[in-house]
Write a protein that binds this DNA or RNA. Sequence first.
DNA 1: TATGAATGAGAATTCATTCAT
DNA 2: AATGAATGAATTCTCATTCAT
Lengths: 191, 191, 191, 191
Amino acid sequence: MARPKDETKIDAIFEATLKLVQKSGFNGLKMADVAKAAGMATGTLYIYFKNKDVLINELFLSLKQSKTSRMMAGYDAADSFADTFRKLWFNYLELSLAEPERMLFIEQFAHTSFLTKKTKQQGDQMLEPLIAFLEQGMQKKIIRKMPMDLLLSQLMGPIYETIKAQQSKKLVLTPAQKQGMFEMAWRSVAF
Amino acid sequence: MARPKDETKIDAIFEATLKLVQKSGFNGLKMADVAKAAGMATGTLYIYFKNKDVLINELFLSLKQSKTSRMMAGYDAADSFADTFRKLWFNYLELSLAEPERMLFIEQFAHTSFLTKKTKQQGDQMLEPLIAFLEQGMQKKIIRKMPMDLLLSQLMGPIYETIKAQQSKKLVLTPAQKQGMFEMAWRSVAF
Amino acid sequence: MARPKDETKIDAIFEATLKLVQKSGFNGLKMADVAKAAGMATGTLYIYFKNKDVLINELFLSLKQSKTSRMMAGYDAADSFADTFRKLWFNYLELSLAEPERMLFIEQFAHTSFLTKKTKQQGDQMLEPLIAFLEQGMQKKIIRKMPMDLLLSQLMGPIYETIKAQQSKKLVLTPAQKQGMFEMAWRSVAF
Amino acid sequence: MARPKDETKIDAIFEATLKLVQKSGFNGLKMADVAKAAGMATGTLYIYFKNKDVLINELFLSLKQSKTSRMMAGYDAADSFADTFRKLWFNYLELSLAEPERMLFIEQFAHTSFLTKKTKQQGDQMLEPLIAFLEQGMQKKIIRKMPMDLLLSQLMGPIYETIKAQQSKKLVLTPAQKQGMFEMAWRSVAF
DNA sequence: TATGAATGAGAATTCATTCAT
DNA sequence: AATGAATGAATTCTCATTCAT
């Protein structure tokens, strides 16, 4: 009978948090600012998130979830490994370029003490489909055998670094450059 | 007031800062804790560093300086490009593995609003010898032509990601794995 | 707006308040908790009580009323002073032992700034029959002459202290001990 | 070499706290007000007391300590039981009348959830000399045998109630009334 | 220089009360 | 009447920085 709990508020809070973290870094993130940017009273934040840490952790998870599922979008087990690899890699790149703040938020916090162990764990779990796919590639001798962590680092590291550089230097990648990046990624890991 | 001479204290402060940032993230870095860990009074910190931001900026530059010069150690213009590339790459990897906290401090802050523009600029300048070297490789058609930012991202990204993973998961790289990483790096950028 | 009729709800609120005050002290008394413990929404509280202070004041008066009238129960002007004194004193003791939370609530708030002057006054008025009775005893030279405040303090003080001790130490009084307490009370004030 | 920690600040804080609790009850006690009343910055409070609860607990203990030792002042094992009893009782009464805020602070908090178990325990310990004395009186058959809690309640209850009444009604006790109170106390417990 | 007590602006969080449903 | 989400003023506590010694 009362005002129903407004679920769009969560999105507004996430959006505001992201925007503010991007603008002034995590350190400068003030709950009061988040509330204002999200168009609500401070206290309202605390209806949806128990405290600042929880907000950060849930935002992280939400972003990681969305990012991961969008990367896996269009995954078709019937396609060849190489085709799928290319598709996933480009998904990830375009996602990163289109929403660098989201990507960098994840990157920035992934190894930080803000995140609880549980959050890190849950975040890792989301990568399982990707890991399974890559594992398969190694078994089929399409890509080289190596510990999964190294493989992921090899593939994601350059993308992260690129969007960081792009962020601070306002560069724009041409299609040819993207293609070049992909080829580097592929050459580095393929037999 | 000129910078006091006591380099011992400065080192102690840097060391303490690094240790604390590693332990509880930058967010939890308190000047009082730095002072205690460095074995001095809070006030003393402010004799050596005007404020917290200056401390962070100077530590960043000091680390970047040291890291860069150690990476370039043994650089000999007479060596072949490939040999030098291998030497520099391994220098960088070993450096990163030996002192991950230092490396991650740099990485973590490099794109952060804690750093002033000037600091970022000075940090970039230190990379010039490396950049000149890589430029040369591109001109000699030994490595592929691409914007320098992409090249650096391609080479450094995987190393950063690897040490992050190594930090949180306590992995140790075998010599064969290191060699594998190098080969991926080389294959990705060489003609 | 006249007081709504639903006495059930008022009782539930009183009961919940009492329970919570006992558990975590007045300081920790939150309206939201009262509402939950009373099985209703926060807003509903405010239909029955204008605000927290009013709730406290009305609860106080209600308790004092009930306590006083139950103490006076069975008062019969035809009985001897001594018999009546004994009856009233035991009524009060048994009441206090049976419902210490209620008694302590009154005690605890009686001299507190939560209560308005009006409430205190109304509370005092309820004691008038008792005061008249004691006054009579002094006039008849059955009990010693002294200011009424001193007399009341002498009679009630030990009972309050006893139930406080009993509360925190979980003691149980034997009939002999109760009798002993009565004798002390009587000896202290009787000629 | 720095400003030495100023121990008189603790007294200033205690004094300010007491004054404010008396004025507006514990509920209205704001740390900012305490600081202002004590003539220092808010932060300074937290140098001397970790938080509000600790402040309350330590003040309680300090008051109980001082009150108890002053009550026992002049205790001489060579004196007769009755003389000592009278001396202690009057010490307690005069103390209570002279510093009712201090006494009521103790009374008010003694059974409250603000106090930790440890504090309550420590507070109880301070009464041991008094308890030993009274025990002795019971053994010598000078005062009646009963559980110590009842005896203490009987003796202290009337005093507490009296100062509460005195506080709110601004009464002043005459010497004859004090003597009357003592006699009631004595008659109630003596054989 | 060195110290560490003192400062006080600022941040997170709470909670009595309101109000849209 | 009843609900409970929303509000935002108020409060506790923190911590970078200053300054008396």
